[in-house]
């Protein structure tokens, strides 16, 4: 009589879990710094529990069957959390594939006397575990991508601060490459801040921009023109010699824009426009 493989596996659940945990613990890449053994055991037990519960002889060969959905969910949760905790892809992969080893080992010992059933069961287990492995990597990558997206957002947020250097003077140091999306953010932030603070002069410092090509220059010109429309004046400062060279070689006309070498010079120019003066305090002479 053909043995019920899923029942068999359920019966041997404890043994499988032990084997699996031992496999994981024996592996050289075990990350005790990221996850304690107790946590690991709990996580593994949950996944195995879900898997064996969903497993029946009918759906054994059908990896896309509905019964496996909760298992995949658990697995997805585990791999996303592993991605966030900083496990490497290899470590995450080994986690799932060591379960395969444990399952196969149990099958091997239990079905020693029935080679044809053993072969059948092993093939099916292989297939099932492979699909679980693929899913693990998929969700692992998704988790990583989420982290990258979040970081990109954060960088965009951080990298465009608008600073009030003086009453009526704003400074905006731009660090990193200017692309269309960032220019939009920079422009919006700057214009909003101009309205909020009632400033009449904005200094755009591009000493942190690694390279200026015709597109970046175009973005800069747009920003300056938009500030002018708002009724404020825009000064560009921090033009390094290499940037000056490329701008002229590309034939970009920046003559309509006030450009200064350094932020200090730009500030001085702004003071001039606002008719402000910075003076050294004269020491009072005792008569």
């Amino acid at each position: 009589m053909k043995q019920d493989i899923s029942k068999l596996l359920q019966k041997k659940k404890k043994q499988i879990l032990e084997d699996w945990i031992n496999n994981q613990l024996a592996d050289a890449t075990l990350r005790e710094d990221l996850m304690s053994n107790d946590e690991l055991r709990e996580q593994s037990a949950e996944l195995l529990d879900g898997l064996l519960k969903a497993l029946t002889d009918k759906n054994f060969s059908d990896v896309e069957s509905k019964e496996f959905e909760p298992v995949y969910e658990i697995l997805a949760g585990i791999s996303v959390s592993r991605a966030k905790q900083g496990f490497s892809p290899r470590e995450t992969g080994i986690y799932v594939f060591s379960l395969k080893d444990a399952l196969l080992k149990t099958l091997q010992t239990e079905l020693k006397d029935d080679p044809s059933t053993l072969l059948d069961a092993m093939l099916k287990t292989n297939k099932l575990m492979d699909s679980m492995g693929i899913l693990t990597f998929e969700t692992y990558l998704k988790g990583r991508e989420e982290i990258i997206l979040r970081q990109t957002d954060e960088i965009t947020e951080i990298s465009t601060p608008v600073i009030r250097v003086w009453d009526g003077i704003l400074a905006l140091p731009i660090i990193g490459t200017l692309d269309s999306a960032r220019t939009q953010v920079v422009m919006e932030n700057l214009l909003q801040e101009i309205v909020a603070s009632g400033s009449t002069i904005a200094i755009l410092d591009i000493s942190g921009v690694p390279a200026v090509d015709s597109l970046v220059a175009q973005h800069l010109i747009k920003t300056v023109a938009a500030t002018r429309l708002m009724g404020a004046e825009c000064i560009i400062s921090g033009i390094r010699p290499e940037i000056a060279q490329t701008v002229v070689h590309l034939g970009i006309d920046l003559s309509s824009i006030v450009t200064k070498a350094t932020l200090a010079n730009a500030l001085k120019h702004a003071f001039g426009i606002l008719r402000l003066e910075v003076r050294k305090v004269q020491k009072e002479k005792i008569v």
């Binding site: 919006e188 909003q192 429309l229």
Partner: peptide, 21 residues
């Protein structure tokens, strides 16, 4: 601000007029 950005994107820089806040 939104109007200013729109005008710039449309390529209208209003060269003939002065602007104030």
């Amino acid at each position: 601000p939104a109007v200013a950005i729109t005008l710039i994107e449309l390529g209208l820089e209003l060269k003939g007029v002065h602007t104030a806040l």
